[in-house]
Design a protein around this nucleic acid. Structure first.
Lengths: 340, 340
DNA sequence: TTGTATGCGTTATCAA
DNA sequence: TTGATAACGCATACAA
């Protein structure tokens, strides 16, 4: 039975019927497959005239190909899921924006997913569900994926980026430790953020500090947990000073923790710098407007992005060059302030 | 030709073949349509035995229905896009998490999209492209949508929530102004955040302050723009004091702006409170650990969420009750500090 | 160089 | 109570 061109539309759909490849074929006077091939850049085999006609018809009608149809036949969609940890994350929007732009250039659409630790009850995580229904072309991990998540993605054949080979977080810890050491502090401490959220980065950063200490023969860093709240921060600082003595160099999880400790020190009459040096991370702009100005670690977002970008282009890009992904060398540097 | 059960799989797909409704049908010994109906809660017409068998087979195989297949036939997917403005946004993850949980209960998957102002060049905005390819069941707007975006969504028939009837932002401005007035400040000012990002909220909040002033017969509030940077903030404050005189009550866009002005005041020898009162908004925890402690506006996230939640449930939920969406009454309150 | 036929997974409509 | 069948929009092997 030859397919009659039915114009039947589900009346429930209030929206205008989206234009399909059939519409273009009709308008350009060619077949649907011709349209499909040309719009997928398989245009070598067609006359320039046909190609041009199809292209302009598509543009004229405002054609956007259906993700559903395409995903159905290809086995996966053109979406990339950017997975963000449930944690503090400065410059998130900047990062997301840059990655989205890159991926759009490669023909992908980006969506963001805030990941949480598995809720404990037997529920499948929302990430798993998302991956199974959306069937994305890939997943970009900003630090939220557990080993189990990784295994799951591998099992369903969904590629994840970046590969787990570069440890950004230990670098931050090392940079902090090196700076504190340079300023004359030989007894170091690491201050975790204590809040309700997950902390996928803290362990790596603390490890970076510990690594530095071990390499220099310094005593192991003391570990404290600091809430963003005056009394709690003061208590944490008091405990640390009792255990470690003075002076102590404190590498903080982020600038918020650093600010909390800074004002706790003022309240307790602890000299900064002097009795304690306090160093933040991931330079929040706010650390630079207070007094004393915070010493912190700033990250070169562009450089870190270049790394992710590269590994994605290698996997999906037309031309390969996937061989060597440049390892970010100087992604983190010290922004000197008045607290070390 | 009877469909042979082909097991052919594109070799490119490294992943295991996802389980389809056909697999369940085979396992349960029923037809695909039976499976589909039961899994869509149209199970009234089937024998309890059949229903149970299909359900358990689906669970056993870990079946997740393909968004592509469903979207193709229904005309839209089961995704909801949460659109987030390119602006400061505290508690974003908390909000996103809560909404995702709610929507999951209604059978939707949530993805987040960071929206930007149209780039100026003729490019269709990424939001438009996303809506056209993903064909979401709806869009939740956290303040990022322009009039044009709204029109676009209406045109393609994609519902947007919440409806533009409640003005959260003017409320914040009014709460700030009322508090400053109560503390004895009759000359008010509004301090916008001056940075690279968009500012979809500032105008509404400033309008709230202006509204309050007009109602009380106070002079119009002065407007200043404050960068999160010491010199710039000091310059802005100097300019304001020259124009408005002292004392002046400053309602700030957020706590970051407030902190910047607070330390600028210290540097300039301006007494806070006294010469100037400084009030933040959207209580950042950091405002509460510094000294002096910041007076700010805290929002009852749960209450605001309830409103969004309600309008969504009304539109999509099984049972209606869509009639009256409760208007959040006391969503914002003052957290008294030492700067007013 | 172009058109035809088929299948992807799901749902709606009908027939049994 | 259940099953067969025909769409939905797209991509592709193959026939013309």
């Amino acid at each position: 039975v030859p397919s009659r061109p039915t114009t039947k539309r589900s009346a429930a759909d209030a929206g205008l019927s989206p234009v399909t490849s059939t519409d273009i074929a009709r308008m350009a006077g060619v077949s649907r497959s011709t349209v499909s091939l040309i719009l997928n850049d398989q245009d070598a085999r067609f006359s320039p005239d046909t190609v041009e006609r199809v292209r302009s018809c598509a543009a004229a009608l405002g054609y956007v190909r259906s993700a559903a149809g395409r995903a159905l036949v290809k086995g996966h969609s053109d979406f990339i899921v950017l997975v963000v940890p449930y944690a503090t994350f400065v410059k998130l929007q900047e990062v997301a924006e840059a990655l989205s732009a890159d991926l759009a250039e490669l023909g992908f659409s980006t969506v963001v997913h805030f990941n949480m630790k598995p809720s404990g009850d037997g529920q499948p995580s929302r990430l798993h569900h998302l991956v199974q229904t959306l069937r994305p072309a890939g997943v970009i991990d900003l630090g939220a994926l557990s080993e189990e998540d990784d295994a799951f993605l591998a099992r369903v054949g969904c590629p994840a980026f970046p590969r787990r080979d570069v440890e950004y977080n230990t670098r931050i810890g090392r940079v902090q430790a090196a700076h504190l050491y340079e300023r004359g502090y030989t007894r170091l401490a690491y201050a975790f953020l204590s809040d309700d959220r997950d902390d996928p980065f803290g362990a790596g950063r603390a490890a970076g500090v510990a690594e530095f200490c071990a390499a220099r023969g310094l005593p192991e860093p003391a570990l404290i947990h600091v809430p963003i709240e005056a009394d709690g921060a003061a208590a944490a600082l008091t405990g640390l000073l009792a255990a470690s003595g003075r002076p102590v160099g404190i590498a903080c999880y982020n600038d918020e923790v650093a600010v909390a400790l800074l004002f706790a020190a003022a309240r307790l009459g602890v000299a900064v710098p002097g009795d304690a040096a306090i160093m933040g991370a991931e330079g929040f702009s706010i650390g630079q407007v207070i007094s004393p100005r915070l010493t912190t670690v700033v990250s070169d977002v562009a450089q870190i992005l270049a790394h992710i970008r590269h590994s994605i282009a290698g996997a999906f890009g037309r031309s390969g060059a996937p061989a060597e992904v440049p390892t970010p060398a100087d992604a983190y540097s010290v922004l000197p302030g008045e607290t070390t």
